[in-house]
């Protein structure tokens, strides 16, 4: 295995992150009835893509591709707006990673980006509720109930990343840090 992935290799890795995100959601569909529990998987794969691939839009790419797959496969609630539910957290992760250079080296950096992803999901939920014309008071309650769950699970998913990244780093598999000297 080569450690220096080509652009196509990186794109394929992001594609795998997107497809694993979607298939994990299908395979490990927990009947927890806790709003936002799927963010555990979503935030892990978004942050993984951004940490492994040295591109400023890596998480956005994973989010967009996962959203496209979910729309074509007809998963989740919200029709074509499902794309926003993946894209907004992903763009939040990309923006957060730009603002916090070296986030992947610290647990708090991963945790912060996880929280940003959860907030992005909450923003997307608020948008869907607003589009269907939900009463503003109920929308606030709904967004709070789903948002708290999304942020907590997103944080848990992000906290799974630092041990994985430290082992990848130990094996010299993190190209981003070697390239930028970060």
């Amino acid at each position: 295995m080569t450690h220096d992935q080509t652009a196509l290799g990186h794109a394929l890795f992001l594609g795998f992150c997107a497809v694993l995100l979607v298939s994990s959601k299908i395979l490990f569909r927990w009947h927890l009835h806790i709003p936002g529990h799927s963010m555990l998987i979503v935030s892990f794969f978004l942050l993984l893509g951004r940490a492994v691939v040295p591109s400023k839009t890596a998480a956005g790419t994973v989010g967009l591709w996962a959203g496209l797959m979910v729309v074509v496969l007809g998963l989740g609630k919200g029709g074509p707006l499902q794309i926003i539910k993946y894209l907004l957290p992903a763009l939040g992760v990309d923006l957060g990673a730009l603002l916090i250079p070296g986030w992947a080296r610290h647990i708090w950096g991963c945790a912060l980006l996880g929280i940003v992803a959860g907030l992005g999901k909450t923003g997307a939920d608020i948008f869907v509720d607003w589009v269907v014309g939900m009463d503003p008071g109920v929308l606030f309650l709904h967004a709070t109930a789903k948002g708290v769950g999304a942020v907590v699970f997103s944080l848990l998913g992000a906290l799974l990343l630092p041990p994985v990244l430290s082992r990848l780093r130990a094996h010299g598999l993190l190209q981003e840090e070697r390239a930028t000297g970060d």
């Binding site: 295995m1 080509t6 196509l8 290799g9 890795f13 795998f16 994985v164 082992r167 094996h171 598999l173």
Partner: peptide, 19 residues
């Protein structure tokens, strides 16, 4: 998760090279 990620990196690298 760590072995799974390494497996993904390996597979993506191999497919890219083969293509």
């Amino acid at each position: 998760l760590f072995p799974a990620v390494v497996q993904c990196l390996k597979t993506s690298s191999e497919i890219a090279q083969a293509a």
